[in-house]
Structure formats: structure tokens, C-alpha cells
């Protein structure tokens, strides 16, 4: 590994632990400073990897350096933030589904006027306790990791610099096949697929439960199938190209927003399945997916805006010496 490559790996390891809007700017400055430090230590010679290793080792573990760029150390480190958000959303969604399921299915809800309020209070308490617990677990994990990492790292072992837009083709291809199979099942109709797989031996009640509502199948479903197909085509295009471009990322975000809007419309317009409770649960699932779609697409568009702003700040040095 060359000295420059080691510095690039180090800068990547630091910046991926920083808030997105600071990454490009701090990365550019850190890279320039480390390169200059290295040249200073080389005293006119060509800097080698051993010299770079000594410099970086003295600079500190990337996690420690990244934390020192914060005004106040975050409770949850940036690197863990994405996992924390995912787990928190999954936990809250599961809790909401559970609470709704209990409210809809418990006979007491029909007779006891305070039942829904009680469930809402208990759900809120469980949500706060769960999120608090998750916060504590992440804080302890981050603290323990920093203690463990102290003195136990080597610049040689830092991960290689990845192109930020590179695509893992095998994983992407597997995901596309999975989504395409799912879409095919939805388009054919779950009842039809079940009947086909079981050779007509599936119980009639099961087939009836998963038969589409006629109005949905005729009017609203085609729009949904088209949007879902387009949503699969974007990653398919990315897999073929081998990279995610800013344009495809934006197209993906806009399509997800449109898909979320279509799902909300379907939920409000009428039934999806002809029979209950499959219809009720499907509409609940669609509402949750729609909400998730709004959050992810708006997050992606906001991130895109932040990245452009950060790049503009880093790439336009205004004054001349």
C-alpha cells in the first residue's frame, strides 16, 4: 500500500464517522493536512508507507479523531446512527401494528369505551421505554468499542477506499430477482398463485381470503404494478451500470414518493382484498409501507441537497493567496 493510499483510507475512515454535511469539507482539509505533514516528515524524500503509518498512528484512531470534530460528543456515533434509526423505526412500526391488531381484534374494544385510550397509553409508554433502552445499548456499545479499540488498531488494516457510488452487483441482482418474483405474485394474485402451487388443493377459505377486490384489481392495481415495476427497473439499471448516479438516486426517491402516494390513495379509496381480515391487514401494511416510503425518499432528497451544499463549499475555494 502506498503512503497516499493509506492516507486516503484513513480520511475515509474518519469522514464516514462524521455528519454527512461535514464529510466532503473536513475530508478535503484532513487529506491536504496529512499529505503536508507527511511531506514535512519525509524531508524531501518520497514518503513511504512506514512513515505514513507512524504519522497516522500518532494522529489517533479514526473514531477518536472523528469524535474530536464534534462540539459535544454525540450519544450515538454517526456510524451507528443509520442502524439505530432503522431499529427504532422497525420497533415503532411493530409496536403500532401490535397495538392496532390488539385494538381491532379484542372483543373488549367494542364494549369498553376506555379500551383504546388504555392501549394508546400503554403503547406510548412501551415506545418510550424501548427507545430509551435502545439509546442506552448503543451508547454502551460505542463506549465499549472506543475503550477496546484504544491502541488496538493499525492504519494497514483500514478498509480500502470505496467509490461512494459503487454497486455490489451480485447482491443487487439477487434483490432484483426477489422483488421481481414478489411483483409477479402480486400481479397474478396471491390466490391464483396459491391455487397453482397447491394444484388446487388449497382450502377455499384461504383462496377467498386472498382474492382481490374487483374494483381494486380493475382500477387501482394497474397503477400500483406500473410504479412497482419502475421501482425495480431503477436498481436494475444501476446494477447494469455498476454504479449509483445522482440522477438515478433522485429518480428512485421521486418514484418512491409516487409509490407512497399511490399506496395512500389505495388505502383510502376502498378495499384491496374481497374478504376480511386480510383486507384490513393489507391496508395497514400498505399504509406503513407508504409512510416508510415518504420517510426514506424525503431523507434521500434531503441528503442529496446536503451533499451538493457540502461539495459546493469544499470545491469552490474563493480567495487567492
Amino acid at each position: 500500500m502506498t503512503a497516499n493510499e493509506m492516507i486516503a483510507r484513513y480520511v475515509q475512515a474518519v469522514t464516514r464517522r462524521l455528519p454527512l454535511e461535514q464529510r466532503a469539507d473536513i475530508g478535503a482539509e484532513l487529506s491536504a493536512l496529512l499529505t503536508e505533514e507527511l511531506a514535512g516528515r519525509a524531508e524531501g524524500r518520497e514518503p513511504d508507507a512506514a512513515l505514513a503509518r507512524t504519522l497516522l498512528q500518532g494522529f489517533g484512531h479514526p473514531e477518536t479523531v472523528a469524535l474530536s470534530y464534534h462540539q459535544t460528543p454525540p450519544v450515538i456515533e454517526t456510524l451507528d446512527g443509520r442502524l439505530f434509526r432503522k431499529l427504532a423505526v422497525i420497533f415503532l412500526a411493530a409496536l403500532a401494528v401490535l397495538a392496532l391488531g390488539v385494538t381491532l381484534s379484542d372483543p373488549a374494544a367494542q364494549t369498553d369505551a376506555s379500551f383504546a385510550d388504555r392501549i394508546a397509553d400503554e403503547t406510548l409508554a412501551a415506545a418510550l421505554q424501548g427507545l430509551g433502552g435502545l439509546l442506552v445499548v448503543f451508547w454502551i456499545a460505542g463506549f465499549a468499542r472506543r475503550r477496546w479499540l484504544r491502541g488496538r488498531w493499525s492504519p494497514n488494516a483500514l478498509p480500502a477506499v470505496q467509490a461512494p457510488d459503487a454497486v455490489n452487483r451480485p447482491v443487487m441482482a439477487a434483490a432484483i430477482m426477489f422483488w421481481a418474483a414478489g411483483l409477479a405474485i402480486l400481479m397474478a394474485g396471491p390466490a391464483t398463485v396459491m391455487a397453482h402451487i397447491t394444484g388446487g388443493a388449497a382450502p377455499t377459505a384461504l383462496l377467498d381470503a386472498f382474492t382481490y377486490d374487483a374494483a381494486f384489481a380493475a382500477e387501482r392495481a394497474p397503477v400500483l404494478w406500473v410504479l412497482l415495476a419502475l421501482s425495480i427497473l431503477v436498481p436494475a439499471w444501476q446494477a447494469v451500470a455498476g454504479r449509483v448516479t445522482r440522477t438515478t438516486r433522485r429518480v428512485e426517491a421521486v418514484l418512491t414518493l409516487l409509490l407512497a402516494a399511490a399506496l395512500f390513495r389505495i388505502v383510502l379509496a376502498g378495499d384491496v382484498f374481497a374478504a376480511e381480515p386480510a383486507n384490513e391487514y393489507m391496508k395497514l401494511a400498505m399504509a406503513l409501507f407508504g409512510g416508510w416510503g415518504v420517510i426514506t425518499s424525503l431523507t434521500a432528497l434531503h441528503r442529496d441537497w446536503q451533499t451538493r451544499r457540502s461539495e459546493a463549499a469544499a470545491s469552490a475555494p474563493p480567495a487567492q493567496e
Partner: peptide
């Protein structure tokens, strides 16, 4: 130490104590 000074400059800037700008001259930005 480098690892102490460079982040400190950023923190002081965020506190409004310092101002900064990118400059290009003969050397790198």
C-alpha cells in the same frame, strides 16, 4: 499533536471564534 490541533480549529470556527476560507495559491488548496 496534529490530531488535537486540527479538530480544535474546526470547533473554534463552529463557536464563532475563528473564520476560515479555502485559498489556492502556488500549492494545493
Amino acid at each position: 499533536e496534529e490530531g488535537t490541533l486540527y479538530p480544535l480549529l474546526r470547533r473554534l470556527e463552529a463557536q464563532g471564534v475563528l473564520v476560515s476560507e479555502w485559498r489556492t495559491g502556488d500549492g494545493p488548496p
